[in-house]
């Protein structure tokens, strides 16, 4: 499998990246770990005449936890997320989700930035970012701007990022209460048939807040405000979980593919969400 030829660039600062993007426009793409882009280039489904490798760009990786907020540089790998004790302390759902992405070799290379910026509905981090109400930092020639993850995804591979912008970081508040990332996949390395990210807080046996998002069940990650609302004020009993499932099913829009027909995916989505809620509640 030989990809089409391309010119390769490895700038060491963001100014260099932006200059190349502005010079080559649509013909240029930035690459983080490359584990979404390279397979597509090998299949010649992605044509990238000018490939900009971000590996040497200063300041794009690393995890900062301060004052109850978390910043993860775009080039931070899934392996680094898993190994970061400080992050696991304030947002354990990140590690739980990252461990379910691909396999060890891919996690050494695959990055948070690539995962969220690519816009592939199969990627896990976009759904998780909905659940966390994260924000994405985008840098372009006119400077920096911040976009809420919940407003970022427009359609499959279509996001609020323009061609001349680079996603440089994700930020979110430290989590409290219970958490779970539950994923059904056919095999290691496959995308989810259905996955659910759940954060729940509990006070005196009652759910006081819940955030629920789903992965690979629409052409964009799905934040289901109604599913979360269905749990609030309840003791997260069977009836409340059923109501959350019903609400979630109203928000997803899966399509048939080699992971199964629509009815099956809706069934799996319900099972996975119920498991995620139950596990998150048990940790709350």
């Amino acid at each position: 499998m030989i990809p089409a030829p391309f010119d390769y660039y490895r700038p060491n600062d963001m100014a260099g990246v932006l200059a190349l993007l502005s010079e080559h426009g649509d013909d240029a793409r930035v690459m983080a770990g490359g584990h979404s882009l390279i397979p597509m280039m090998k299949l010649r489904m992605a044509d990238v005449p000018h490939l900009i490798d971000l590996q040497d760009v200063e300041g794009l990786s690393g995890i900062t936890v301060a004052d109850g907020s978390v910043r993860i540089g775009a080039m931070t790998t899934q392996a680094e997320i898993i190994d970061h004790a400080g992050l696991t302390q304030v947002a354990p759902i990140m590690k739980e989700a990252a461990l379910q992405i691909a396999d060890p070799q891919v996690r050494y290379m695959g990055t948070v930035g690539g995962n969220v910026a690519n816009g592939d509905p199969g990627n896990d981090m976009p759904g998780l970012m909905q659940c966390l109400d994260a924000h994405f930092t985008l840098v372009g020639k006119d400077g920096e701007r911040t976009v809420a993850a919940r407003a970022f995804y427009e359609a499959a591979y279509m996001t609020a990022r323009t061609d001349e912008e680079v996603l440089t970081a994700v930020t979110f508040r430290a989590t409290s209460g219970g958490y779970a990332y539950e994923k059904q996949k056919r095999k290691i390395g496959d995308y989810a048939t259905a996955a659910a990210a759940v954060l729940i807080t509990k006070e005196g046996g009652t759910c006081t807040a819940a955030s629920i998002a789903m992965t690979n069940l629409s052409d964009v990650p799905v934040f289901s405000a109604d599913a979360g609302a269905a749990l609030v004020g309840s003791s997260v009993d069977d009836e409340a979980i059923k109501a959350a499932k019903e609400a979630m099913l109203g928000d997803i829009d899966p399509s048939e593919d080699n992971r199964g027909p629509v009815a099956f995916k809706r069934h799996v989505a319900g099972v996975i969400l119920a498991r995620a809620i139950t596990r998150a509640w048990s940790r709350a």
Binding site: Y8, H35, I38, L51, D53, A79, P104, Q105, V106, M109
Partner: peptide, 18 residues
């Protein structure tokens, strides 16, 4: 699989330029 700069990587998914 090879070890590249201390990471296990799949060498079919890496350009020599990288």
């Amino acid at each position: 699989t090879v070890t590249l700069n201390g990471k296990s990587v799949k060498s079919c998914t890496m350009f020599v330029a990288q």
